[in-house]
């Protein structure tokens, strides 16, 4: 018989009782479904790795790294402290140290803050109690001593407009996180497909840096999509990175040259190809068996691409996605 600590309260477990059943009996509201270790709706996290290993069957490497476990399958032998995964993130304060316009609509924000993260995870930034947005991390904790986020300015966007004109270097900003499980876990020899549209490039950059840092030696296929070629950003930096690492193949794919942006005659878009990104991937990668896939950007893109890669042979467990979901008030995480 042992006990667990959850939300500062102690719950004594009965003989053979799982962590989930103990918490439910004590009146805690814990999401759960099959109670057989299959549906994964009762996932929690704990730092007591020895006590949760037996309850991690079927979880992804990313989930194990985050110390997640299935509470319905967990029967600890010693007292452990457990947290719900949605609230397990840290809350802290960051300071803006750089704000740079990377293209006509994208701002690179660099912050210093004491946050332990995996590149590719995301943070929630708070303007005030009622306005928050999530942004993915492009930086790498071992390579850069700042957090880097790419913020797309939307004309009627409350948060991005504030970042563009109201937020200044030296300002403090509330940060919650990190969250998300789209980060580098792979066999180092596995071919990687990293595909992003828009500011999906931010988490992809984080994942790419981490793959290189960890000595990934399989081929890395980096595909970036945009509606119009003038929307690509960090083009020269990416070309340089690809030139320095021969295993990287870099492709820019765009839909149309937008008429409203009036490209000047000297605009050179020869670095990119005009093609449908789904068609491009279908033709270039007809057989994706054995690939490790990372997809970042708008949810419509990650959903469609996930299905395409899966049907082309990539294992479901080998496909990770960071889907950007439009923010509504109802989806706002609890205020720090």
């Amino acid at each position: 018989m042992t006990s667990i600590v959850f939300e500062n309260r102690n719950v004594t477990l009965k003989e053979n009782e799982s962590v989930l059943d103990g918490l439910l009996r004590a009146g805690h509201d814990i999401p759960n479904g099959c109670r057989a270790g299959v549906c994964q709706s009762c996932i929690m996290r704990s730092d007591s790795t020895e006590e949760i290993t037996h309850a991690q069957v079927g979880l992804t490497e990313a989930q194990k790294t985050l110390k997640h476990f299935l509470s319905c399958q967990c029967h600890p032998k010693s007292p452990i402290s457990v947290q719900s995964t949605s609230l397990s993130s840290q809350q802290t304060e960051g300071v803006v140290i750089e704000k740079t316009l990377l293209s006509s609509s994208i701002t690179r924000l660099r912050l210093t803050a004491d946050i332990d993260y995996r590149p590719g995870q995301y943070l929630t930034l708070w303007k005030d109690k009622n306005l928050a947005r999530c942004y993915s991390l492009a930086s790498h904790p071992k390579k850069q001593n700042y957090l880097e986020l790419h913020i797309k300015h939307l004309t009627d966007g409350a948060f991005s407009s504030w970042v563009k004109s109201g937020l200044n270097i030296g300002d403090k900003i509330k940060i919650q996180g990190p969250l998300g499980k789209c980060f580098y876990t792979a066999d180092k020899a596995q071919p990687l497909l990293l595909a992003a549209i828009g500011t999906g490039l931010a988490p992809i950059l984080g994942i790419l840096q981490d793959a290189l840092e960890k000595g990934h030696h399989g081929a890395i296929h980096l595909i970036l999509g945009a509606s119009s070629p003038d929307n690509f950003y960090l083009v020269d930096e990416l070309k340089k990175l690809a030139a320095q690492n021969r295993q990287i193949s870099l492709t820019f794919v765009y839909q149309n040259i937008s008429a409203q942006n009036n490209p000047t005659p000297e605009s050179d878009f020869s670095f990119a190809v005009q093609k449908d990104i789904y068609q491009h991937c279908k033709e270039t990668y007809p057989d994706m068996k054995g690939y490790r896939v990372f997809l970042c950007g708008a949810e419509s893109f990650t959903t469609k691409m996930r299905k395409q890669c899966f049907l082309a042979g990539a294992g479901m467990g080998d496909i990770s996605a960071d889907a950007f979901i439009p923010f509504h008030t109802s989806t706002l995480p609890p205020s720090p």
């Binding site: 099959c34 109670r35 057989a36 299959v38 549906c39 994964q40 959903t303 996930r306 299905k307 479901m316």
Partner: peptide
């Protein structure tokens, strides 16, 4: 698709006569 995939796994576990509720 991940949730849908988990449901298929639950279904197959049942079909295989495995542990499920």
């Amino acid at each position: 698709m991940e949730a849908q995939h988990a449901k298929q796994k639950a279904f197959m576990t049942m079909a295989f006569g495995g542990p499920n509720s």
